[in-house]
Nucleic acid binder design. Structure first.
Lengths: 152, 152
DNA sequence: TCCTAAATAATATATATTCTTATTTACTAG
DNA sequence: CTAGTAAATAAGAATATATATTATTTAGGA
């Protein structure tokens, strides 16, 4: 996946974008992160700051927007106020199961939109679907097991 | 639906909540609203202010949280930053088609969770689902027709 | 190497939401 | 009906997220 992402990053040039060190490091923040939880703008900022002490939060936001437009990352809206972002290896989109205890976000292999299009939902309603959100919130297997042990 | 909501409002007392004039007026703001678009905290605030000039925005937020806990209203997270709220006549939940042009939100008669439970999705993943989000964003029939006319 | 559009840092600003505290009020038990 | 109390309130400060402005710097093509 890393190669796929790096390749798409370099293709930015074709569209008039420049590949600045800051921009690269922002992408690296995602590539380096082994965490399941997508990163907030603040977290990306802290990570990049390790290498570029002077980077401004504004630069992070601006780049997250650019990378999002190019579908290199996706923005995920969780229940907490701030938005989070994750790499988008397939260039498509991804839904998640988000644990209310530990905050981990596991991708789920299901998209409700496929069912709606099979049923001609949008055509019937005469509604042109452009985007959609779908996320599950609950308790992951790890946290559930831990809860059982704690109560024993 | 109004009666249902009012009945549930009065049942709050059983749980130690008080029915203050402000609280009632906040619920009225929703009952009076014929708009399809769920109300933002700010909009509720402006509405209630007509009757209680001194109400604070904090009171609105506090009550929206309480009413949400009691499932009298639902919070809907749209793409724009601020959250919105709507009455929940069924005491259940509701998904929407949100128009990116006019902002209207039409309820949709479909919940992806039903399909997941039919397929034992949660059991397989050992994930305990507690909440979920699902919203469609796009262009409603009215705005689409208008666009065609404008381009003619 | 030079030129220019793009990107950046720094700073200010906007907006949404929550917290703190002192005061008031709705309800309940007597 | 009254008094006591937990709950709710207003006011204002505080926090957090995100965006706008501007002057300066820089990536990368010519």
């Amino acid at each position: 996946m890393d190669e796929n992402i790096r390749k798409r990053l370099h293709e930015m040039r074709k569209n008039g974008y420049k590949i600045t060190p800051q921009r690269q490091e922002i992408v690296n923040a995602f590539l380096d992160s082994s965490r399941k939880l997508p990163l907030s703008a603040e977290e990306v900022y802290m990570k990049v700051k390790e290498k570029y002490q002077n980077i401004s939060l504004d630069t992070v936001y601006r780049n997250l927007a650019v990378l999002q437009n190019l579908k290199i990352i996706n923005r995920v809206n969780f229940h907490d106020v701030k938005s989070r972002y994750e790499l988008n290896p397939g260039g498509d989109h991804q839904h998640h199961m988000i644990c209310l205890t530990c905050g981990s976000a596991e991708p789920i292999n299901f998209c409700p939109l496929k069912l709606l299009s099979e049923n001609n939902f949008a055509a019937e309603k005469n509604f042109e679907i452009r985007e959609h959100t779908f996320e599950l919130f609950g308790y992951c297997s790890t946290c559930r097991e831990r809860a059982i042990i704690d109560n024993a």
